[in-house]
Structures are given as C-alpha cells and as structure tokens.
C-alpha cells in the first residue's frame, strides 16, 4: 500500500557531517559495489567505457562553494542519498504500491517486482534520490543497506550501511532518530543538525550537520604551526642545540 504509516517504530537514517566530509567519493563507490550485487537488480551502467557513460547510483557527492563578503571562499562536499522522509511524497504518488515505507524502521523501499518504471516517484522527490535503472526499467533508490544492517551472516561491525562503513573520515553516522539517546540523535542535537528543503514538507529523517565557518588566515593572523614551533624552539637540546648556537655565532 502506498499510504504512509502514521508512525514508524524506529526512524533509521543517517547523520551526515558536512564539516568532516572530505569529498573522496568512497561512499559513492562502496554504495554502488554493495547495491549492484545485493538487494534488487544490479545498478546498471550504460556505455561504461564509451564516450558518454551513464549509470544508476544511489548516493552522489556534490561540491559547493560558499562565499561570504570579505571572507575566504569555503568548499563544502555534499553527499546526497535518500533521506527516508517521514512524509515521503515518492511513496504516495506510486500507482502500483511498489514504493513503500516500512512501519518497523521507516526505511523507504521499492518492490522491484511491482515497479512499472513510470518515473513519477523520481519526479515527486525534491532531492533527486531516486534514479531509474535504464537496463531493468525499474526505480532504484537507497535501501539504507537493509540487507546489511540486519544481516547476521556478516561480522557485527559490518552491520551498517556500506557508505557509513567505508567513510574514511567518519562523516556518516547511522542510527535510530526515534530514540533520543541514540548517537545520531545526540549528534544532531549538539551540532544543530538540519533538514534539507524543509519547506517541501517531506520531514526528512536524515540530518545534515552544518560545517563551521572557515578561519580567515589573512584577518586573524592565524598560523596553525606557530604555537608548536615556539614550543619546539624552547625545548631544543643536544646536537641540534649545539648546531643552532654555533651557527648563530657567525
């Protein structure tokens, strides 16, 4: 049924730290790798080695530049995947019931055996989180690695989404937002986590942790090494100290 559940027991989702993300795209690649060989049909590529390769991805990293007047420009890497919205417009527009939101954990999924590939859900999503698979003709989207997080056949530390597991910077956090004591809930509270496009009324579960304002080296006379060097100069001893003193005599 494409009616949304009134409430879900859990609200599983991601907290994405824009302060930490270095834009390496490891999450994009590990997502593609896991999801091409597990839940649903493979994530196909068309003309992967040709002039115009295209393919379906469930997670993509955009890069934005922000600039305040009289301040240096700041670069923000911006990973984007399904936000598993509480009021998911992609679910209610689905004519077949292939799109649904799970009552137990709030994950939004596509039943690919029912999907007719009309593309309406991708139109309804403001975030561009759904992509049609050109080969299979069905809609693909982030499953929050539903086949990892409950999978008892893999080591416990791997039971989180592939993007979270692979992030070398620790910029992605997975957990239950319905539980105020969970790490993601606390993190969101501490860091003032935000919703994307709140005016669209989708009530996204995934939260984005905003980046700090970049230091302005020119204005603040800020030198990250200075305090360390001062300490170093004071403590110098032994052979280097002798070289230092000898050289200063000339």
């Amino acid at each position: 049924m494409t009616s949304l559940p009134r409430q879900t027991d859990k609200k599983l989702g991601l907290a994405i730290d824009l302060d930490t993300c270095v834009g390496c795209h490891a999450c994009v690649i590990s997502c593609k790798e896991w999801n091409t060989s597990n839940y649903g049909v493979p994530l196909s590529d068309v003309e992967p080695y040709g002039a115009n390769p295209v393919g379906s991805f469930l997670n993509r990293v955009h890069t934005f530049e922000a600039k305040l007047e009289e301040r240096p420009a700041q670069i923000i890497h911006f990973p984007k995947s399904c936000l598993h919205c509480e009021d998911a417009p992609c679910v209610t527009v689905c004519p077949t019931g292939a799109s649904y939101k799970r009552t137990e954990d709030g994950i939004v999924l596509v039943n690919e055996d029912w999907c007719i590939g009309c593309g309406l859900c991708a139109w309804a999503c403001p975030y561009g989180a759904r992509e049609m698979d050109e080969v299979a003709g069905v809609m693909k989207k982030c499953t929050l690695c539903v086949d990892r997080i409950y999978n008892e056949n893999i080591p416990e530390e791997d039971r989180e989404p592939a993007c979270v597991r692979s992030c070398p910077a620790g910029a992605r956090h997975f957990g239950d937002f319905a539980d105020p004591t969970s790490s993601v809930s606390k993190l969101t509270k501490e860091r003032g986590g935000i919703d994307l496009m709140p005016e669209q009324g989708t009530k996204p579960v995934n939260k984005y942790l905003p980046p700090r304002l970049k230091n302005d080296i020119a204005q603040e006379n800020f030198d990250v090494l200075r305090p360390l060097l001062e300490e170093h100069d004071k403590n110098i001893s032994g052979f280097l100290s002798w070289v230092d003193k000898t050289l200063e005599k000339f």
């Binding site: 530049e65 922000a66 403001p126 496009m197």
Partner: peptide, 14 residues
C-alpha cells in the same frame, strides 16, 4: 534551502 548552507554566504555548485 536545498543545501541548508545559507549561513555560509553566497552558494554555487563548484
């Protein structure tokens, strides 16, 4: 609103 980054000033896709 789509990036939530309005505090950081003028935005553009890099």
């Amino acid at each position: 609103t789509s990036t939530g980054l309005k505090n950081l000033g003028k935005l553009r896709l890099l």
